[in-house]
Design a protein around this nucleic acid. Sequence first.
RNA 1: GGCCCUGUAGCGCAGUUGGUUAGCGCGUCGCCCUGUCACGGCGAAGGUCGCCGGUUCAAGUCCGGUCAGGGUCGCCA
Length: 435
Amino acid sequence: MRERHLVKDLAEMQDGPVVLGGWVEKLRDQKRIQFIILRDETGDVQVTYPRPQDEDKLADSVSTLTNGSFVWIKGRLVHDERVKLGGLEIQLDDLEIVTLADPETPIADDTSIDKRLDWRFLDMRRPEMNLVFKVQTTIEAAWRKFWLENGFTEIHSPKLMASASESNAELFKLEYFETVAYLAQSPQFYKQMAMMAGLGRIFEIGPVFRADPSFTSRHATEFTSVDMEISWIDSHEDVMNFQEQLMVAAIQAVKDNHGEEIKRLFEVDVVVPTRPFPRIPLAEAVDIVKARGHEVVRGGDMDPEGERQIAAHVAETFNHEFVFLTDYPSTVRPFYHMRHEGNPELTKSYDLIWRGTEITTGAQREHRIDILIEQAKQKGLDPEGLKTYIDFFRYGAPTHGGFGMGLLRVIMLMLHQPSIREVGFLFRGPNRLEP
RNA sequence: GGCCCUGUAGCGCAGUUGGUUAGCGCGUCGCCCUGUCACGGCGAAGGUCGCCGGUUCAAGUCCGGUCAGGGUCGCCA
């Protein structure tokens, strides 16, 4: 493989010969001097070529360049205060055109997100987009580091299933030889299975699918779910405690590695949250929101405006961007959430809200098979249809709990972006299967 | 799926009460330009006004339908 220098390293290098590979961001083609703004995945640099005489092949070659063309540049690095772009430039010695680009691009920086998604590979040449995926990589690495240091095992659960993992709604159905299969909408049952398998602590980062015709800035039909499950917990408080540490680890890592660049490109200050995060029982949160003038109409659950209101309350009262809403009513939670001892109306569950957007649902799970079956029946589910799942609990089960978190929502909120579409590699929604 | 909004050049937009040849900025192309850096100057190309139908002497403009997109709600992560 041909060695090349990266633009981001040039500032620290001494003047001398360099080789760069990248694409033409802008060509300023004057009669006597030519400037190429060259970009690679790490930054922009000016390449300069003063035409030595009227007839010059290299200058003619530069003139053929179009924006977006991929090229090799051979030249000499020169630090020069005149150059506003980083105080340095490359004096061009040789140009190799790898591929010329069509001169007119179908999108520009101010193009709406939907058209930019059509041409995502062009959109992602923007430094902001490059940074988004570096941030994502840093977040996942921080989580993995935390998990590995705390004795977790990684699992990869199947995404093809014979039946629904939770409800029959929102399921994608597909042909499967002589029968049908469904795409997993959650690894929920499998990560619980791992507890009964004695794995103790597990995590999974993987795709999930929801056939939900939802048109909002924070929903997709396929997205990456971050899941964790742990045994031997006393309550959902133990799960929240782990999640806090994960969020702090990720945000600290992003701040350390990309804080300045995020400030420069997104004008966002990355704020590492303090622990513990505020915790508010849901019933109390509903009252707080009501006192602020927003009546939550749906029975005992929080609506999006309520989540924004409670986030505003928490920001004012605790100066905190996160809040755990805890102890949701059993009416709005799935059958496998454990209920409070002595109060079956409430579950040992929580949602994590970050700046007004829900990013996580977590809970202690019901591990006692007879109670689990009873709760399924109360939800109108047929235990026969859940046989594979319920059998997990038949041969001994530890107490356990966990959570699922939307990766794109975390990144969207981290970078203060208006939509998960801005921060995903490619978006999948009810109206989008391409590219 | 409900409600609201938007579809006009490659991109972002303007278009008056329905009235001649549909404009502006960016981009693209051509010529000029010795250090530009949002380079600059001069010029040019580029349009089935989302689509179908209706009203009218006349529709980008009004009406109906339809398609696409956005926001929001429901639902969730």
